[in-house]
Design a protein around this nucleic acid. Sequence first.
DNA 1: GCCAACGTTGGC
DNA 2: GCCAACGTTGGC
Length: 274
Amino acid sequence: MPKRKAKNDTIEGDVETPRRSSRTPSKQVKAQSTPTEVSPPPAKKSKKGKSSKTEAKEPKEAEDLDLKKDKKEAKNEKASKEKDTTPPAVEDGSKAKAPSGGRQYWLMKAEPEPRMEKGHDISFSIDDLAAKSEPEPWDGIRNFAARNNLRAMKKGDLAFFYHSSCKVPAIVGIMEIVKEHSPDLSAHDSSKPYYDPKSSPDDPKWSVVHVVFRQKLDTPITLKELKDWRAEKSHPLQNMQMLAQSRMSVSKVSAAEWEFLVGQMKDRGDVIQQ
DNA sequence: GCCAACGTTGGC
DNA sequence: GCCAACGTTGGC
């Protein structure tokens, strides 16, 4: 699932600083240096995730079942990992040799319209992100392939912000990855919309990356446009991951795809600063 | 390891 | 609200 998200963006969420603090030691130190981080919420991710499934089952599962499951999960994990890993990465031959390779590009979905998930409004829009004054943790991702993409992100990578499950699904803005992956602590809080009883603090299954707002497009690029382009022969968007796997909430965008889309944005009058 | 059943995503 | 696509679960 990459499911989408939810917004725990409530005030309370912001208050909850704890989440971040539970990161690894070294990181923790850093976190502490930043006084109140606003951490919470954003979420994005998936949608209808009814957590009922997991929760309902959980009770009856015996420990051995859990073990079995873990094995399977590991398998799935591995499978998706291989899948995603293969293609992505490398591709910036064109870029100047930056110290650590080139910048990678991504597309991350969030639902801008209110939707309740376990008593929380999980919506999160580009405007919500723009209003943040601190890096926002992209939490709630509960799908292995999407999570693996999160883990592949590097500081400095750019991502399109996509609005899903709304009137006009579209790419509405650009954000930057400012902090690489760390455990998604929302998975361990049963009151959270994306609680996952199978994940534990000592062996976190899920991850978040922190993002910051870069810009909002004056003219969004709609899903319809993306699909129309993909339908054209030999088009740069022919193999775009988000179109091929529409349910993936965090997908890879190739350099060629990014350039094509940024070119379109510029043609429409948006000033893109990269 | 295969695969059927089931659940979720997300556009329409 | 419907439903196609596809991911996950879990038996065999």
